[in-house]
């Protein structure tokens, strides 16, 4: 009876562990996308402002400058703790 319970416990633990590993893998798969895409988009906004707004001397593109900076700073602020948490989690695993 006790052996059976022990076996059940170990199998449940194994299942939980594999679920955790699977989730971590998913998070790692998503990480580059979550980190890189906003940076690229913000650089596109800044580039468009630079070419058409700054060099082309048009104030109509100032909004893109603001948005580019907002995206860049906002994402960097949250990316750093996210990367830290990923490193911590990898260490735990």
């Amino acid at each position: 009876m006790i052996e059976k319970e022990k076996m059940m416990k170990t199998s449940t633990n194994r299942r939980n562990e594999s679920a955790q590993k699977l989730l971590l893998r998913l998070e790692l798969w998503f990480a580059p996308l979550l980190l890189v895409v906003p940076l690229i988009v913000s650089l596109v906004f800044l580039g468009d402002w630079y070419v058409k707004g700054f060099i082309g001397r048009s104030a109509s593109y100032d909004g893109e400058l603001f948005l580019g900076l907002l995206l860049l700073i906002g994402n960097l602020l949250f990316d750093i703790p996210f990367l830290r948490s990923l490193r911590m989690q990898k260490k735990k695993q």
Binding site: E27, L35, G74, N75, F78, F82
Partner: peptide, 11 residues
């Protein structure tokens, strides 16, 4: 932090 970054990514 994954959820937080998912939010900021949406921008």
């Amino acid at each position: 932090w994954f959820r937080r970054v998912f939010h900021t990514f949406a921008a």
